[in-house]
Amino acid sequence: MLMETVARWFLDLYETTGINLTIVYDAYDRQRFLSGLGMTIYLAVVCILISIAIGAVGAWAQGSPLRVVRGLVNGFVVIFRNTPPLVQIFFFYFGLGQILPRIEDADGMRVPILTNVQWAIVSLSLFAGAFNVEIFRSGLEAVPRTTTEAAQALGYTRLGVYRHVLLPLALRICLPALNNNLVNLLKTTTLAYAIAVPETLYVSKQIWTDSQNVPVMMIVLLIVYTLLVGILVFIMHRWEKALAIPGYGQGSGR
């Protein structure tokens, strides 16, 4: 009932002003847009989690006594930081996706191992993960040597020191930088558009092609992303507050 009233109002708005918000009054467009929004959020959340894990593991591996391991991690970081993320996505989806063998699905159809959504997750996570390795690393460098020594003296193993002492401290130090990078990752999910992942930008383009309402959808897009970034920043700030150590830095005292 309410929906109908709202829909009628937006239909009137279109007829009187030309502001054509099909995503509000047209059920099909609304469904498309919401599923696109859902896909963007799904991509962002999954990639954020994986990229943080990559960052934590990578930063740990950078402290490895083995030169080869350090070299490989550094090589990974250096490559993914200094090549365009869009080309990375193409490289993975078109390049590797074509070479890898296909598998049979339940119906006996031969399908690629990974779908375009999964490839997008892989490449976006690796891209943001490379930045996270650097960020965690600089956080780790800010923890004084003596703290590590104190933990070792208490009998912690190398992994134990990292897991219980170094990482928790480093995380708090590098949260602002991490925050920045995750916002960046959220914005970068739009690149999945290029391999036809139906995220917000992709469905918006479908909608404006069908309804010929480019300017309106443009504004909607900009507002939606500003809101999404705002929500992410809000969550990160809450997290920062929750983790703040009393007596240290801006998070404390006042």
Partner: peptide, 27 residues
């Protein structure tokens, strides 16, 4: 508080790019 040193942006390596290092080679 001697617990934490100030946050420093990434690596402190000196600038010497004519010299190839392992990282560059791996990359």
């Amino acid at each position: 508080l001697a617990v934490l040193l100030p946050f420093r942006p990434p690596p402190p390596a000196a600038f010497a790019w004519p010299r190839l290092r392992l990282v560059h080679l791996v990359g």
